[in-house]
Design a protein around this nucleic acid. Structure first.
Length: 242
RNA sequence: UAGCUAUAAUUG
């Protein structure tokens, strides 16, 4: 069964959906019955293709088959709902978790924070941090980076950098994704000098600019009609094999 | 006493 589940996940990650369904259908009638992992993977698969109705159907049916959704299953569905702009329903699921005595964890909150941010409600998302600490949960890289991205997309650079400072104060060092997120925000605003400042800072901190970083900064320079700098970076990334 | 598999953040 574990091998089956692993196989299903590999197929899903490799976007081999045709094979994915064949393998899944092959396991149902046989001796091996799906477990929570299998069902959760299935819920995730439907979410991934944007078919929330099917995801919900699997979610409901697994319970009827004596295999109740656990916190991971809830988180998976909540992520699917958020990705599809159905944040209201996502919060409803969080409430349902509590009713079922399942504990919302860092994944749950980071997902909901992302959902709200995507709707342009970063302020509201930030309030979830308070709720988290009441629950005894500490925000991590993902939570902060998600929020920073949310504020950046709303054009609130101040708040984004304030959150960066806050995470550092809490002992969480920005990682490469955090840097890329900050760089994305300021490049979009055309502040290319500030972008290079951050680029320098991330190198100082021991991070190597990756494809994301280069693409963002190059695009920024192109938008500012500075093809010279864009090409220089392109050369640099070629030389570094990124 | 239950290992190994499932969920959240950045470019194109």
């Amino acid at each position: 069964l574990r091998s089956f589940n692993s196989l299903l996940n590999d197929l899903l990650k490799g976007e081999k959906m045709g094979l994915f369904w064949k393998v899944y259908e092959g396991m149902i009638p046989g001796k091996i019955s799906p477990d929570v992992y299998t069902f959760t993977t299935l819920v995730g698969a439907f979410c991934k293709i944007g078919n929330i109705n099917e995801a919900r159907r699997v979610f409901k049916e697994m319970g009827e088959k004596g295999c109740s959704p656990n916190a991971v299953t809830y988180n998976t569905l909540i992520a699917g709902l958020c990705r599809n702009g159905r944040v209201g329903e996502a919060f409803e699921m969080k409430r349902e978790m509590a009713e079922k005595c399942l504990v919302a964890d860092g994944f749950t909150y980071a997902t909901l924070v992302g959902g709200l941010c995507k709707e342009g409600k970063s302020e509201e998302a930030k309030l979830l941090l308070d709720e988290m600490s009441k629950m005894g949960l500490k925000p991590n890289h993902v939570t902060y980076t998600t929020l920073i991205d949310g504020f950046m997309r709303q054009g609130d650079i101040e708040q984004a950098f304030a959150l960066r400072d806050e995470m550092v104060k809490c002992g969480i060092q920005p990682n490469i994704i955090t840097y890329n997120t900050l760089i994305r925000g300021i490049c979009k605003m055309g502040k290319m000098d500030k972008a290079h400042e951050l680029l320098h800072e991330m190198v100082q901190m021991g991070y190597k600019p990756d494809v994301f970083t280069y693409n963002l900064v190059i695009e920024g320079h192109c938008r500012e009609q500075n093809l010279g700098k864009a090409c220089a970076l392109l050369e640099e990334m070629k030389k570094r094999n990124v």
